[in-house]
Design a binder for these strands. Structure first.
Lengths: 353, 353
DNA sequence: ATGAAAGCGCTAACAT
DNA sequence: ATGTTAGCGCTTTCAT
């Protein structure tokens, strides 16, 4: 018995050699069998799998990554995990990735300064992620730059970059937003306000832009002061609504850049004794689970979270696989689209008159 | 120029040899410098760090893990990421772990069947996690068993296991629950109901138990039908409240096993035209961010999330470090405690009559 | 204090 | 179709 196998025998941890000797084959055959490559004969394959099962063996991913250069880890960076939209998104992404044999490296902390970005990039680089989904919905170009520089495939939401390694997911906010505006107009609203998200987020800017074009298309006149800055948080929504309440010419409906903002609005309205939807209609965006349970349940523009996660994963996988192809320079799909659609609940009604 | 360095030169990726040759030292010295070990002379150390910076070098964690057997990855498994309590917990844990140079392997999917548990265990084992925080707040003994069998340090909430590799975090629900009950009694409530969590969760059982002993201590008579099963979800809370509403002798206050349940109760009360807090007082547990924005803002028993994350990390770190100590069998701290405290908002008031 | 050299467990040439 | 062997980038004896 060689020193190698005696070491294994003592620790109890089977390695590829343990399997090989039990199955009476070479380690190469074990490796091939596991990786399903280059037709190992049925007979040996069976012996190998039997040995694997018998030993309860599984490969050491670190050794594997080291030699193959492939970590099978995907990074995902989101902002503000206190917005339930993101956990739901991560859960979907995780499910899909794990089903395909990938592990996730999640960065969920708030990104505020350069040092934090540096940390994220470092974590991703050190663990050798094969691709990163940047679902902060905007900004943080610096994250991108660094990662792109290192040749790591990226997928971004709502932001196109002229780089073959960077894919984009376009979210069709226009459709959902148009439905929302038409819904309000159909109810008789003429004065519609908008609580915007941070200007640093591409998605927030797109959402605002869709609001403006939808209202314009409906022939609605939106006063400047009806478009108020908020920040996608509960408190921000509350504060934004309070500013709206101070206006002479008050809107009868408010569309919010996300559901968190809308929940803040509901709160502010309640404090101001303003009844929703009788005296004020409120529309959110995202359709997080909580919207069914707000008082009243929130009408909102639903974003297909699962589709978004799926698109992000697919984008990355296509990139990763293209990278290891022989014909590396064949054009690949780099643009994906996700839909939105209005979900009518009970926070919208005809204006009082 | 050797074939090695020419490869590096072409890919641009510096490795330990690149650093060594630039600093004119051996790779062993580079390794020692990076790991801060066995006093490398100031002079060489400086040269090495300079080279590292100049090359923007960082070590390959896979290679490192392979040889050292230490992955610097910690697993964390939570249930039901749609409950905002868990994302907040993960974010805290991540922040602490990353600050200490650990990476996180998160499993956030719902754990429902044996296959899913198998998957989680496999993921953890394959990536060679050094410890796992099981913050599902109960059950899933099977996860534990498998991980323990493989000698992986574990930390659990509310569940003690007689194994030197398993630590426990005890949450002092008694204090917060007593405060809540006393608060209600002080307001004049005599009929207090309880919406319980799943019986499979140790934490839910502890919470229920604390409710029972607190009310007993206050001399409250709790009718059997006032203790209703729920499941820690919004819908479950709503359904539970609806059952309470059908009772002849209705309670004037409800304490819920968690905030999600309480938000469901608020919803059910609203549907039944029951005003909170005038006609019904509601108390939650966890103090998730949303509770400030429910209508009305929710009185709840706050659980020190950050302390919990901290305790979980410390427990694991102590285990990991003890494992690599020479005196491996010295006793280590295996029990931790986290506090709870009532946060009074506006969902509680004196009963009507 | 520093360096040389032996692997960590695996994959991928290369041989047969 | 299967086996042999040379590393992947690093840590860690063992020399010096």
């Amino acid at each position: 018995m060689s020193p190698r196998s005696s070491r294994n025998a003592s620790t109890g941890k089977p390695d590829i050699r343990t399997v090989a000797s039990l199955a009476r084959v070479s380690i190469a055959t074990v490796s091939r069998t596991i990786n399903g490559s280059s037709a190992v004969s049925e007979k040996l394959s069976k012996r190998v799998w039997k040995a694997i099962e018998q030993l309860n063996y599984f490969p050491n991913t670190h050794a594997r990554s080291l030699v193959s250069g492939r970590s099978r880890i995907l990074g995902i960076v989101v902002e503000n995990i206190t917005n339930p939209f993101f956990p739901e998104l991560i859960a979907s992404f995780e499910e899909i990735a794990v089903a395909h044999g990938y592990e996730l490296l999640v960065s969920s902390g708030n990104i505020q300064n350069a040092a934090q970005i540096e940390t994220i990039v470092r974590r991703m680089l050190e663990r050798k992620v094969e691709g990163v989904a940047v679902l902060t919905f905007g900004s943080e170009e610096s994250v991108l730059d660094q990662l792109v520089t290192h040749g790591i495939p990226l997928v971004l939401a709502e932001f196109e970059v002229n780089n073959p390694r960077v894919s984009t997911i376009l979210i069709d906010y226009a459709t959902g937003m148009r439905e929302a505006v038409e819904h309000l107009v159909g109810l008789g609203h003429k004065k519609v306000a908008y609580l915007a998200g941070p200007h640093t987020l591409h998605s927030a800017e797109t959402r605002l832009h869709c609001f403006e074009s939808s209202t314009a298309a409906c022939g609605l006149k939106i006063r400047r002061e009806w478009i108020v800055d908020a920040d996608h948080t509960l408190k921000g929504g509350e504060a934004g609504m309070q500013r709206l309440l101070q206006l002479e010419d008050r809107p009868t409906a408010v569309i919010c850049s996300n559901d968190m903002t809308a929940i803040g609005v509901l709160h502010a309205a309640h404090l101001a004794q303003l009844r929703v939807p009788e005296e004020l209609s409120v529309v959110g965006l995202d359709d997080i689970a909580f919207t069914e349970f707000t008082l009243p349940p929130l009408t909102t523009i639903g974003l297909a979270r699962h589709d978004l996660a799926r698109a992000a994963f697919d984008a990355l996988r296509i990139q990763v696989e293209a990278g290891s192809q022989p014909g590396e320079f064949a054009p690949i799909q780099r643009s994906f689209e996700v839909s939105t659609a209005l979900v009518v609940r009970q926070s919208t009604a005809a204006p009082k008159s």
